[in-house]
């Protein structure tokens, strides 16, 4: 199996190069056509200050409209995929995704509440973020009720809290003004990066980067945790502590993403799976790969979302429509590899 080692090196290198290429390609995509020479001149101008060969409008288009959106897609995709991968390891369950502990439902309800009560963009972010964290906190407390089976109780806690917040979202939709608020709520829940700007990006990147960095640091311990409570502890891993660290990090990263992009499903479930098929379950390789693959995948999906039709298609719809068939194809090709 020495080829497996070479393969994983190639894959990890590709994981680094592909996002950079995708960023360049994505800068071309959009309603307004841009020539390669113009784009290069615009990018070069940022370093040399030589403003020839393009108009001010084109410069604004690249730096103020397309670039922040591209960066946001990379960041959000990476955060969702990494959180999903890390939580799968902690819960020893390949069907867990980044929204497992109620983050998505909680953030969704926070946004609904804010849309109905205040209708201010900034407060939408704040409410989504705070309620996302509250939901995880509640799931975690439910998980503590019965200490003998901590992981199963946490999953159960997540399911309970998610459905409570889902019910609250339905209630919010029911009482919302159908002409304004309801459409905004629906749009938010389906996910979009259309409002991307540097300020949002900067604010959201704080929890996202902290969360992702934390997961990167403890990724070796995720391997050990995934063997189960008794074995992990016998090897010197303080399971309660590391579970707490990982849940906090994934909650920060996911809540940070959901509050600026809305709920985008599927990435946190499927990207880690594809990663597992490519480099195996060792989180030392899997976690970095989730970062680059998650980012790349959401960037491609967002490129399609903003270019395929006249009006934008919500991301949550596209991630499933595109990701589903891709996943089936990969499953089919990798048949026989067996265990996750």
């Amino acid at each position: 199996m020495s080829t497996g080692k070479i393969n994983s090196k190639i894959i990890l290198t590709a994981g680094f190069v592909v996002p950079i290429i995708l960023v360049f390609i994505s800068l071309f995509i959009g309603r307004y056509p841009l020539a390669a020479s113009q784009l290069l001149a615009i990018l070069k101008a940022a370093i040399t200050g030589d403003h020839t060969g393009f108009s001010l409008m084109e410069q604004t288009l690249v730096w103020q409209i397309r670039m922040p959106r591209i960066l946001m897609a990379l960041l959000v995709g990476a955060a969702l995929a990494v959180s999903g991968g890390a939580l799968q390891g902690v819960f020893r369950n390949p069907l867990v995704d980044s929204g497992m502990l109620g983050v998505s439902a909680g953030a969704g309800f926070g946004a609904c509440l804010s849309i109905i009560l205040f209708n201010s963009m900034v407060l939408n972010y704040v409410f989504a973020f705070v309620f996302g964290l509250i939901a995880v906190g509640l799931s975690y407390s439910v998980g503590k009720i019965y200490k003998a089976a901590p992981t199963i109780m946490l999953v159960l806690g997540g399911v309970i809290i998610s459905s409570i917040f889902s019910a609250l979202i339905s209630f919010a939709k029911y009482i919302a003004d159908p002409y304004q608020e309801l459409s905004e709520i629906t749009f938010w829940l389906m996910g979009s990066l259309a409002r991307a700007n540097y300020r949002d990006l900067l604010v959201a990147s704080i929890p996202i980067v902290i969360g992702m960095a934390g997961i990167m640091l403890v990724r070796w311990r995720i391997n050990v945790l995934s063997l189960g409570e008794t074995e992990a502890r016998s090897m010197g891993v303080n399971t309660a502590l590391y579970r707490g660290i990982i849940i906090t990090c994934t909650a920060l990263a996911t809540a940070g993403s959901v509050c600026i992009s809305g709920t985008i499903g599927w990435i946190g479930l499927v990207i880690p799976h594809i990663g597992r098929m490519l480099v195996g379950n060792d989180n030392r390789k899997l976690i970095p790969l989730c970062i680059t693959m998650g980012g790349s995948f959401l960037l491609i999906v967002d490129d399609i979302a903003r270019s395929i039709t006249g009006s934008e298609i919500p991301l949550g719809i596209l991630t499933a429509l595109i990701g589903g068939p891709i996943y089936i194809i990969i499953l089919k090709n990798k048949r026989g590899v067996g265990d996750w």
Partner: peptide, 14 residues
């Protein structure tokens, strides 16, 4: 160190 009874793992490792 502790050697548990044989069991499979959810996620496979080398």
């Amino acid at each position: 160190s502790y050697i548990p009874q044989k069991q499979k793992h959810t996620f496979d490792y080398t």
